[in-house]
Design a protein around this nucleic acid. Structure first.
Lengths: 218, 218
DNA sequence: ACTTCATTCAATAAATTTATTGAATGAAGA
DNA sequence: TCTTCATTCAATAAATTTATTGAATGAAGT
């Protein structure tokens, strides 16, 4: 029948978007570019894959309309195509967490083996920031910090942590954050800080979530 | 566990959900069961595929946590696993429509070729409602109707239409609406009503748009 | 217990997607 | 114009997903 044929085409077109989301590597890429516009090489490096492979995944994302590109100098910067896309990615991740217990197990497993997990919520952080009772560090690479960060946060990339410990206060709680709930850099930073006698916790979310609800950024 | 290895597992688990969404047939199934809990055979019939095939797709959806089952008598009823899932499906569909022009073309093509699939505007409907010259039906699932609907609308879910035709007037124009301009349930209802001798049209928008500009709701 | 039948499982070939490799493109700066 | 090099394209084998078929399961009603 005619309706059947139409529906088949319709759902096939809709699946262009969902198919683009169906690959683990592409999800990791999406999570990365949720931080802000980044060039292909940067992505390839972070997902630990050849540039040609990253490029091909980016083509799929681009053709589906989920990401856009912009040329700046020598580089092609990829970014999410609007807040709508970010919101969907966020919702999908939330569904994954709430409906797939293996994900929570994986995270707990990873975190508990590294150190006692202690997180702080957005509201707690805001309250402590008002009382100036906290030292907030952004442990993402400085490139991402410069694309935007939580207001009053100090850039202290995870890789530089060891040599810059003297910048941190011993008498205040140190809160670390990075890319989002799945980002592990803040966990690793907190573990390292605790080993060195600091009072440290991680924010239970990351910069994209903070920005998405219009909390103060720089 | 190495960080990279962990991340690989993490995104692979997240992709269980997105992979479940990546198949056109499963999207059609999701759209079907968004209307309410339905048994496997009903789904198989509507997607025009063997029962075994429908069952396998349903297993994928179930394992991903997107749908749930409940036994009632002889049948296994499948339903969406919460509003969260419905919202994501809605957002994905919206992204598809806004970022893939082929979808809009398909839809326009479909509607214009189906003879007499006319729409009525919000203002026309309001005028006719004032003159009591119209019978307004909400063809969404009753759960959605109960969460809010256009004032004076009667709940008549599309799935119940066939067995409740005698409730409708032959002497008044019947106006059907559903979730929005892209929702096909109202189109299908109108087509079915016209085949059965009613004077029917669809509202060119849906409840969310109506509510958004503060027109009368219940 | 027995029968029915809605649903699920299992096996398989076809179709699609993915990672890999190396070459091609093409914009920017010299 | 030439060179550089970030990115894309193209080809291919491996891996995964899909539709199909027929058999197995197991809950409900007799």
């Amino acid at each position: 029948m005619k309706t059947r044929e139409f529906k088949k085409k319709l759902y096939k077109q809709l699946a262009v978007v969902t198919k683009a989301l169906s690959n683990p590597t592409r999800l990791e890429i999406l999570d990365l570019i949720a931080q802000g516009p980044v060039p292909v090489e940067y992505i390839a490096e972070h997902i630990d894959q050849p540039v040609a492979n990253a490029s091909q995944h980016l083509q799929v994302l681009k053709k589906s309309g989920l990401v856009e590109t912009e040329r700046k100098g020598k580089y092609n910067y990829y970014r999410m195509a609007g807040k709508q896309v970010y919101d969907v990615w966020n919702s999908l991740r939330a569904i994954g967490f709430s409906r797939n217990s293996e994900i929570e197990d994986l995270l707990n497993d990873y975190r508990s083996k590294k150190s006692g997990l202690k997180t702080i919520s957005r509201d707690e952080l805001l309250r402590k920031m008002e009382e100036d009772d906290v030292y907030l560090i952004d442990v993402r690479p400085s490139e991402e910090f410069e694309l935007g960060h939580i207001k009053n946060a100090v850039s202290l990339p995870k890789v530089e942590l060891g040599e810059r410990l003297d910048e941190l206060p011993k008498d205040k709680e140190v809160v670390a954050y990075c890319r989002g709930p799945l980002c592990l850099m803040a966990d690793e930073a907190v573990r390292f800080l605790k080993e060195n006698g600091f009072n440290a916790v991680r924010l239970d979310e990351g910069f994209p979530e903070w920005k998405a609800i219009d909390l103060p950024v720089d």
